[in-house]
Simulated assay, not measured.
Amino acid sequence: MSVAKFIGRALLASIFIKNGLDHLQNPEPIVRAARGAEIPQPEVAVQINSGVMVGAGALLALGLLPRLAGTALAASLVPTTVIGHPFWDKNGKEREQQQTQFLKNLALFGALIYVTGQD
Rank of each mutant, 00 (worst) to 15 (best):
A33H: 05
A74S: 09
A74C: 12
E38G: 01
L21P: 02
I39W: 08
V52G: 08
L62V: 05
K104L: 15
Q99H: 14
N91S: 09
A69M: 07
Q41D: 11
E43M: 05
I83E: 04
S50F: 04
R35Q: 14
L62P: 03
L24E: 02
P86A: 11
L59T: 04
Q99N: 12
I30H: 03
G55T: 04
P79R: 03
K90C: 12
L65Y: 12
W88I: 02
F102P: 08
P27S: 10
A75N: 01
Q101C: 08
T81I: 07
V78P: 04
D22E: 11
W88G: 06
D22S: 11
K93F: 15
I39Y: 12
P42M: 10
E43Q: 13
A61H: 11
A33I: 02
I83S: 02
Q98I: 05
T81P: 01
L108K: 02
I48W: 03
A37V: 01
P86S: 11
P86D: 05
G20D: 06
N105F: 13
H85L: 12
P29L: 03
W88C: 10
G51Y: 05
P27Q: 10
G84H: 06
R32S: 09
T100V: 12
I30S: 00
Q41E: 12
T81V: 09
I83W: 06
D22A: 13
M53I: 04
T80E: 00
L73N: 05
I30N: 02
F87G: 04
W88L: 05
A61N: 06
A69L: 13
A58C: 14
G57Y: 03
F102D: 06
L62H: 02
A33W: 01
Q47A: 14
T71R: 03
A75D: 01
T100E: 14
G92E: 08
F102N: 06
P42A: 01
I30C: 00
T71I: 10
L24Y: 03
Q41G: 06
F87W: 13
A56V: 00
P86M: 06
P79C: 07
A33P: 03
V82I: 14
P27D: 07
A58H: 05
I30Q: 01
A74H: 11
L73V: 06
P27N: 08
A61W: 13
R95P: 12
I48Q: 00
E43A: 09
N105Q: 12
K104S: 12
P66S: 08
L103A: 14
A58M: 15
P40S: 03
I48Y: 02
